[in-house]
Design a binder for these strands. Structure first.
Lengths: 116, 116
DNA sequence: CAGTATCCCTCCAGATACTG
DNA sequence: CAGTATCTGGAGGGATACTG
């Protein structure tokens, strides 16, 4: 399966009930995935490469990381840039849309600190 | 299985990677469940009963609603009050901890409105 | 009314091995 | 390096029927 096929297939989108319209759902489709918020947290620090992310999110498998990155890319949260070096270099960078999630994630951190 | 057994079993807690400490995870364990945010949205409007929630979240099964309510109760997000009427009356009400999620959910709605 | 008890099945996510 | 291919188990969650 190629990258574009996988995006077409639209897999790895967190399950959210259908037939119910609530825009909160749109946001949860982005940050509600099992690994999404960890990838976002890393990328808030700046552009990173695949291996870097894999090292910093130690328990993630390459498959899950790949799936998560593709999902976030398809959602317009991050951009993937490949450079034709040998071996290939790939960098992931948040888009403005992705950076705009920072406040929400931060507030979630504050809530947790206050109540747990 | 009794209610307390189920809470012991700790099922229906959204899967979040273990071994990784990030307080954002704590918040997602509360609002990240498939149905959680819809139940929260209803209860922000005020105290509601089981049947009321079931009617307003039309596609939820009684099992999923029950599981979600128990999970939220165990997390201190809502309180369950049963009145010995015939037939029994049960009401669900947000705690202050639960109400404090309102801003986050609201910001998620704003983000979605802005970017999707 | 407000759930519980079962059955069942999908599909996610981990492990592993492999490659341009 | 940066992924993809494949297999698999287990659990989440739906449907349904039943009950204090």
């Amino acid at each position: 399966m190629t990258r574009s096929d996988a995006v077409e297939a639209n897999n790895y989108i967190p399950k959210v009930p259908e037939h119910i319209e609530c825009s909160i759902e749109k946001t949860l489709e982005v940050i509600g995935g099992k690994w999404s918020f960890l990838v976002l947290r890393e990328l808030f620090e700046g552009t990173k490469r695949f291996g870097e992310l894999q090292r910093q999110i130690r328990t993630i498998s390459p498959k899950s990381l790949s799936d998560t990155l593709r999902h976030l890319e398809a959602s317009g949260i991050l951009e993937r840039h490949a450079y034709p070096t040998v071996p290939v270099t790939v960098e992931y960078t948040l888009t403005p849309k992705g950076q705009d999630l920072h406040q929400i994630l931060h507030d979630m951190k504050l809530w947790a600190a206050k109540w747990t």
